[in-house]
Amino acid sequence: MRILVVDDDKNLCRLMEVYLKKEGYKVVLANEGQGAIDKYYEENPDLIILDIMLPKMDGWDICKAIRKKADIPILMLTAKGEKADKLKGLELGADDYVTKPFDPDELVARVKAILRRSATQSIRGDILTFPNLKINNKKHQVILKGKVLDLAPKEYDLLSFLAKNEKQVFSREQLLNQVWGFDFIGDIRTVDTHIKRLRKKIDEKLDDYKYFHTVWGVGYKFETSKENE
């Protein structure tokens, strides 16, 4: 498994790298914010060890940026022992929190524990399978009738979110918040536009099934149904 370590202390990065590699992990290092985000997209890590105090972009901002795109496990590092920092990290979606200085063996143990929990929780979430349709969230890939489907990023995000919440009805406002984010500035009809595109790319290519359903007066849901039902 691959771990992205983000800390501006290069000596500490190398120390963590040594201990993690001893346990068989592949380690990728970054020393500042934008570099960390670039490495995340390039390397597709299984877990991120993220320092809070970083130059230019701090760990909070990196955590928020990555959390908008993926549910990857994040272990926060900080030199502060304040309860408020721990709570803030957990509120932003961090999975655990370690205060510097720390025992490297304890860090490795926490990494193992987080990855075990993550593996258990994501067995169903990584690959979603439906008739003639497979969504691989690990590879960010959709396969329709055996062929990889070309989707725009927000089309994929919308499909993945609805499929993970199969049969649940969402209003347009809820979909905007979940997929585009609370800070999205634009027309609510962008949801309708993306649903229309997904229907054209998926439902209209299938003879026996359809997936995208309008619930009149409410919004949309994803549900497997035969075309003649």
Rank of each mutant, 00 (worst) to 15 (best):
N44S: 14
N44P: 07
P45I: 08
P45W: 03
D46W: 00
L47M: 15
I48E: 02
I48L: 09
I49W: 00
I49V: 15
I49Y: 00
D51I: 08
D51H: 08
I52Q: 06
L54Y: 07
P55G: 10
P55D: 11
P55N: 12
K56R: 13
K56W: 05
M57F: 03
G59V: 04
W60H: 04
W60F: 15
W60I: 00
D61R: 12
D61S: 10
I62W: 02
I62A: 01
I62Q: 05
C63W: 00
C63E: 00
A65R: 07
A65D: 08
I66G: 03
R67D: 04
K68T: 12
K68V: 10
K69L: 15
K69H: 12
A70E: 15
A70F: 08
D71W: 07
I72K: 04
P73K: 05
P73V: 11
I74H: 00
L75D: 04
L75Y: 05
L75E: 08
M76W: 11
M76E: 04
L77D: 12
L77S: 13
L77M: 14
T78G: 06
T78V: 03
T78I: 04
A79I: 11
K80Q: 12
K80F: 03
E82R: 06
K83M: 13
A84W: 09
A84Y: 11
D85T: 04
D85P: 02
D85G: 06
D85K: 05
K86Y: 02
K88A: 05
K88Y: 08
L90H: 10
L90C: 10
L90Y: 14
L92F: 14
L92W: 08
G93E: 02
G93D: 01
G93S: 09
A94L: 04
A94R: 02
A94Q: 05
A94N: 06
D95K: 09
D96S: 12
D96V: 10
D96P: 06
D96F: 13
Y97Q: 08
Y97E: 06
V98W: 05
V98Q: 12
K100Y: 10
K100Q: 06
K100V: 08
P101I: 07
F102N: 12
F102S: 10
D103T: 00
P104G: 08
D105C: 08
D105S: 14
E106T: 11
E106C: 03
L107H: 05
L107W: 05
V108Q: 05
V108N: 01
A109K: 13
R110M: 05
R110G: 06
V111M: 10
V111T: 11
K112W: 09
K112T: 05
A113H: 13
I114G: 02
L115S: 03
L115K: 09
R117A: 10
S118L: 01
A119E: 15
A119K: 14
A119D: 15
Q121I: 13
S122P: 00
S122D: 12
G125M: 11
G125E: 15
G125K: 15
D126I: 10
D126T: 08
